[in-house]
């Protein structure tokens, strides 16, 4: 399915969908409340069947946190970039998608570890790369490490 057709289809699925122009892949932003249902439908609908989540990245924006899901369908070969924003940066929360794509389990743990984004209903949300008693979330823009940071 090409990007236009995909976009047309997706706009019927959820409300408040935003897209970005001039991007490499089709970019879709869903409101956080609809994320899980939307993702579930993306995976399980015959027409889309996005079964391969190849990248999940957390991004720290000044006002909010964002999680970017890069999706591909092994059946149809089309790609989609799904984004969702959290409310504010203090207690960023999103629904987990690791019941839809098992690979998201580890990726979400990494995002939690580095950005402090909490994923609701995640079965095992712990620090992944850092030690359990680490304070702060190092990939945030405002993270300061007085001891180890080398400013270039």
């Amino acid at each position: 399915m090409n990007n236009e057709a995909l976009l047309q289809l997706l706009t019927t699925w959820a409300e408040g969908l935003e897209t970005e122009e001039n991007a490499q892949y089709l970019n879709v932003r869903v409101p956080a409340a609809q994320l899980h249902d939307f993702a579930f439908r993306l995976k399980n609908d015959e027409a889309t069947s996005f079964d391969y989540l190849f990248c999940l990245s957390g991004v720290d924006w000044p006002e909010y946190m964002e999680v970017v899901y890069h999706l591909e369908s092994t059946q149809h070969g089309h790609c989609l970039v799904l984004k969702s924003r959290t409310d504010g940066r203090e207690d960023p929360r999103l629904d987990t998608v690791c019941d839809i794509w098992p690979t998201a389990d580890a990726h979400e743990r990494e995002a939690y570890d580095m950005f402090g984004i909490r994923f609701n209903n995640h079965p095992d949300l712990r620090r992944l790369l850092l030690t359990d008693d680490w304070e702060g979330y190092p990939m945030r823009k405002d993270y300061k490490d007085e001891i180890n940071m080398i400013e270039l």
């Binding site: 190849f54 990248c55 990245s57 890069h70 690979t103 389990d105 580890a106 990726h107 990494e110």
Partner: peptide, 12 residues
């Protein structure tokens, strides 16, 4: 962000 193949391969 680097999507490294080993990361996904490990958790299977």
């Amino acid at each position: 962000k680097f999507r490294s193949p080993g990361f996904s391969n490990l958790f299977v």
